[in-house]
């Protein structure tokens, strides 16, 4: 099988590491060779962060390049726009509709672009935009936004739901299992 590429992008602190751990656990369980590449350190402080997940029969490079991503899962709209050029032809962009102002917008040095979902679609991206924060809050806590978004993304990935749920149980702390299962389900419906 040719290597598949998934990017998880967002803002430092949004919980993208848990999302990549969930995906990693699922894919290893499915018997794939898997590489997950994260960046730690300075960029985590509210900066733009990206995690690469690659799987297939044999995976070499840990990173994904421009035009290669079969899936981009974005935790924030502006980040979806920033990374959309990494989408492969025929790739799918699943994005949270949450907006988080970066510092240049906060200070007034730049404007947050309007109408990003429409513009992403016009630029040729196959977009599924989704309010994952609302789904997480409906499940009981906005902190489960990462899991709600992965629930939505799971509809496009094509693995059976029970495999996702088993992986989810493995990667979240026991006391948050119920919340996360609920958030995942709300995302997936």
């Amino acid at each position: 099988m040719q290597t598949k590429n998934v990017m998880i992008v967002g803002v430092g602190g949004q919980g993208s590491l848990l999302a990549s751990r969930l995906l990693g656990r699922l894919l290893v369980g499915e018997g794939f060779d898997v590489k997950v590449s994260e960046v730690h350190g300075m960029s985590q402080r509210g900066g733009s962060v990206v995690t690469y997940v690659r799987y297939g029969d044999k995976v070499y490079s840990p990173v994904i390049d421009r035009g290669e991503a079969d899936f981009i899962v974005s935790f924030e709209l502006l980040e979806a726009a920033r990374w959309v050029s990494y989408l492969a032809p025929g790739g799918k962009l699943v994005t949270n509709t949450q907006r988080i102002d970066p510092m240049p917008v906060i200070t007034g040095a730049a404007d947050y672009p309007d109408d990003l979902v429409r513009r992403l679609a016009e630029a040729g991206a196959d977009v599924d935009a989704f309010d994952a924060l609302a789904a997480a809050e409906a499940a009981g806590s906005g902190k489960a936004v990462n899991v709600a978004l992965m629930g939505r993304a799971s509809k496009h990935f094509g693995f059976p739901e029970d495999k996702w749920l088993a992986a989810l149980r493995d990667v979240v702390p026991a006391r948050f299992t119920e919340l996360n299962l609920k958030a995942f389900a709300l995302g997936r419906t």
Partner: peptide, 17 residues
């Protein structure tokens, strides 16, 4: 070289804070 979708305008940067 694939012709990936790109947004025309310059996007605001998101530096760490």
């Amino acid at each position: 070289s694939p012709q990936p979708p790109v947004l025309g305008s310059e996007l605001p940067t998101r530096p760490p804070v």
